[in-house]
């Protein structure tokens, strides 16, 4: 089954609303997933893996308080970036506007890939943005030039690493890409030089993925579409004779 971008975003909005996300949060979460899917990063596959966890507890907007540190650090206690990504990137952007560059670390955060759409959004508003995180096998770096529509995403292989990761995500925003690069390198593991050049996805990849998805539609697994229907049903109101009058009968 194929769906369109608009249809996907509409379904995602209602699904996240069904999960308890609030107005604003569910709009942003829908855009984050759709961006990843439209740009060839298997956003729907990632979401499929995340949905059982997202559905396991009620969601409401999370007030964030930074932990004491020389830079901004938040512990989101296992939340998805879908729920807190906007706040995190907003903080990074606002600090960058005041101080030319900013770094925000988020601990215990899941689904970190989805932060890319938030970075793209900030880049469109004129800031250079970056993010990095490590998984059990890779170290991921995402970088947008200011005003760029597409990022450069580099994935470095890292064997047997970080099993006890804090599920951290680093977000950088700044007026100049060079400042962010310096901040990023200061956070790199000591054996950084052994990583090699990594697998890189550039603007051509993202542009062609987007164009293909727009032109031909998006493959939607039936099971995930059913999950969307199930979640959407939570925001629908049962129909009665009385309620039909509320539509003009």
């Amino acid at each position: 089954m194929k769906v369109s971008k608009n249809e996907l975003i509409a379904a995602l909005k209602k699904s996240f609303e069904g999960l308890g996300f609030q107005y604003g949060d569910y709009l942003d979460a829908a855009n984050m997933v759709a961006w990843a899917q439209m740009h060839g990063l298997d956003g729907l596959g990632q979401l499929s893996l995340a949905l059982p966890f997202l559905d396991a507890k009620p969601h409401s907007s999370r007030a964030l308080e930074p932990a004491p540190s020389e830079f901004w650090v938040f512990d989101v206690e296992g939340d998805s970036i879908l729920l807190c990504g906007s706040q995190i990137v907003d903080i990074a952007c606002s600090v960058a506007r005041r101080q030319s560059a900013a770094c925000v670390r988020v601990d215990n955060c899941h689904n970190r890939l989805f932060v890319i759409e938030r970075l793209a959004n900030a880049a469109q508003r004129g800031l250079a943005t970056m993010a990095c995180w490590s998984t059990s096998r890779t170290f991921e770096v995402v970088a947008f030039e200011a005003h760029a529509r597409y990022p450069k995403v580099t994935s470095f292989a890292m064997d047997k690493r970080d099993a006890a990761t804090r599920q951290s995500l680093f977000v950088f925003c700044g007026l100049a890409t060079e400042d962010l690069q310096v901040m990023l390198e200061s956070l790199m593991p000591d054996d950084w030089s052994e990583f090699g050049s990594g697998n890189e996805l550039n603007g051509d990849f993202f542009r062609s993925a987007y164009d293909a998805a727009l032109d031909g539609g998006i493959d939607m697994p039936a099971s995930l579409w059913s999950s969307f229907d199930r979640l959407t049903a939570r925001v629908l109101v049962e129909s009665t004779e009385s309620s039909r009058a509320g539509a003009g009968e």
């Binding site: 907007s61 007030a63 308080e65 706040q87 606002s94």
Partner: peptide, 18 residues
Amino acid sequence: DDVARFLMRQPQYRGIVC
């Protein structure tokens, strides 16, 4: 404070602020 800090503490207003 700026809006980022307000929304950090009161994220329920994010949609309407945007």
